[in-house]
Design a binder for these strands. Sequence first.
RNA 1: GCGGACGUGGUGGAACGGUAGACACACAGGACUUAAAAUCCUGAGUUCGAAAGAGCGUGAGGGUUCGAGUCCCUCCGUCCGCACCA
Length: 874
Amino acid sequence: MASERYNAPAREKHWQQAWEKADIFRAGANEKGPKCYVLEMFPYPSGRIHMGHVRNYAMGDVFARYKRMKGFNVLHPMGWDAFGMPAENAAMERKVHPGKWTYQNIDTMRGQLKSMGLSLDWSREIATCSPDYYQHQQKLFLDFLKKGIAYRKSSKVNWDPVDHTVLANEQVIDGRGWRSGALVEQRELTQWFFKITDYAQELLDDLETLTNWPEKVRLMQANWIGRSEGMLIRWALDPKTAPQEFNEVEVYTTRPDTLFGASFVAVAADHPIAKAAAEKNPALAAFCEECRRMGTSVADIEAAEKLGFDTGLRAVHPFDKDWRVPVYVANFVLMDYGTGAIFGCPSGDQRDMDFARRYDLPVVPVILPPGEDAKTFKIKNKANVDDGVMINSRFLDGLTTTAAFEEAAKRLETQKLGAKPQGQRKVNFRLRDWGISRQRYWGCPIPIVHCKDCGVVPVSEKDLPVKLPEDATFDKPGNPLDRHPTWKNCACPKCNKPATRETDTMDTFVDSSWYYVRFTAPQSDTPVDKKAAQYWLPVDQYIGGIEHAILHLLYSRFFARAMCDTGHLAFQGNTREPFAALFTQGMVTHETYKSQDGYWLLPNEVKFEGEGGERKAIEISSGRPAAIGSIEKMSKSKKNLVDPDDIIAHYGADCARWFMLSDSPPERDVIWTEAGVAGAGRFIQRIWRIVDEIAEKYPDKLGTKPATFGPEALDVRKAAHRALDQTGKTIEALRFNVAVAQIHEFANVLQSGLSKSGQGLDWAAREAGELLIRMIGPMMPHLAEECWARLGYNTLLANEPWPAPEAALLVDDQVTIAVQVNGKRRDELVISRTAANADVEAAALKLEPVIKALEGRPVKKVIVVPQRIVNVVG
RNA sequence: GCGGACGUGGUGGAACGGUAGACACACAGGACUUAAAAUCCUGAGUUCGAAAGAGCGUGAGGGUUCGAGUCCCUCCGUCCGCACCA
């Protein structure tokens, strides 16, 4: 019987149920095999999944299913990064509780993910907004606190005066709150921090061990951590000029070698010395205020001029007690880097140069670039930051920059100012401690109580979790926890007198910093089941977007270490890295559309007229023109979403998966386009027809292998085993687009083989068909099951192994090698694979086109690369 | 400004320093069909040529090499990250 077209939507449901019934994706099912933890970054439940999710989860699923077939004990879990602002915004806009909104989205998206046929262990599903999860996070917080990893300090934050909340730097756009549009203020607030800086060196050093991470990500993290080697140098202040409480100023520099080029000292507007000086000087106070208001956006910084204000203070040069330089407050000195104070060497730093020219300060060249003459060397308005030989630098003259650094450092270390050395070497990091306080409702409550008498008191562990109140209100801006009538009232855990709860919640990046640990034992009543974690960790393959290259991945690396140091976690071996291998897949992007009223429009809410540069978008509902915006990552906020449901309903999940995997290298961004989906759908039908024909012609399961095969059968067998070999390797390397091409190629050979006849071809075709099904199994799992059943099996293909190819079929006796003359291809040669180089050479020289190309010239040299190429040089 | 990646047909893209353009999409022609869909076959980087074939071709220019899309240098372009970080 010739079967119908493969009805993907109907059959996919069937196979999903079969998998669920057999419960085959439960982790730990194959205890004999080595473990393999495959993880894709868990999604934020924003509403519905889009093609970006499909790409991410299809990739992870191919890898997980392949590893299953290879005999690994696979852990492949899924959960929800479920706290966050969009839920609160939805509450404000639609009067729906953030929890209700979030769980509805989870239900929708879970259903969509299930319809993709992913090999997930749903028994381990977690949602970070559930007390089952966040109570353990509160416990971790308390243990971090005990260990000094969590602490409280006052710090400057971006404050949105309309929404009454702190904003992350990324949420400030051109100096305004991204939601309210209000001018953001800098406010001093007491906040909770994690001491990630304690781990800066380790986080930097261990990047070297992450050989299965993209180089790019490691580099980005290294830059973010930003280690620099320099010195702290204390400059005495001339007591005649300085306020009483200050007799020195400490600066940080990476260039002590340029000290003789110094012409000023500058401090940040928030530096204590600036504040003290400002008290007596209203003009200076006004200048400091101006500095604080300055924007932090890129444009602002580029446009900003180097401005300063002379405090009237004079600092004494470390190497010359008679040399005094002015102390300025300068707008380009940052309080939170180094000591908040610098010395300026205009000839060696462009900012210092700009500053010096503006305020007429001396510019003394101290480094002579290679090839310059000291007598004629002049410096104008461009500072020289490169290495060279020291000049105008007294005892450093003639030394190289590096030697001068050492010499200056040595002197400063031995030289005393007061009782202490004048300078000390100091490694400085750009990385700051992680501020985790957020003035929001929909986050993990920080388990702390504020008591008038006892101060800041941790909640007792027996009182965990500190749960969010259900009955919060979202009708006005600000923190719903703070204005809740009763929630924050409690008894002090220490003295039992009335006290108030901390109303800040944790940054949602905290939630995602340890979920991969929780997945190893999601029901454990301690945060971590150490044994389970030790067995499963590290994650063997982590897959997610490059946009998390720094924050999430750095926080997670920090968290794993902090959890080790608080005794929650231990790794096998001597690593503390949570993700052994990382793959950053590219984004799925799409054009954006905006209506005339300024609302974002979904792609399916617009239609198009014209082509190329003339192409115009029309809003379908109103018939009015819509603006075509830039191509961006699919995101709910810009509404440039394509939902996979339509494709799944029409062509099936396998088609969506196959198409997403087939076209582009997985690490590259792709612009979503429907073109090609139909082609993928046709290929599915083609596979089905091939298998159908095999089932028809060779209905019996594979019996004894024939002793000999004719050439037609051998071609098919070779193609099959080669494809098996290659697709295995390419899937392992996550090069899915190449694997797709290899399967295509094989299917072409098999299909044409079916139209032939020859000795052993029936056996070979049946074998090839079975191998083809296994090969498509990880990518198109439903189709593979259907085909497997069509061949008469009543087992699940998902449980079938990935067989080893027959080595003998991977090599040819005869090879075709190209023949070049002077590097130009002239002919090719079919010869025994094991032919001696001399024989290959002789055969090549006899070829007609070779003789012709030589035009009678003598052969100077012949290069033979066995089994590849011959190059005749003449 | 600093750091990094990338640049190959109409399109997405293949190619351990070894036959550039695999595989696919789109396209064109043909077969089957009353017709369409589906399917199958064929063609196709570009120039010259009826063809056989030859020349030119991986952003531009140079270099290393028997041989360069691949390695090195310079430039152009695109993208990404960081950024008054001392």
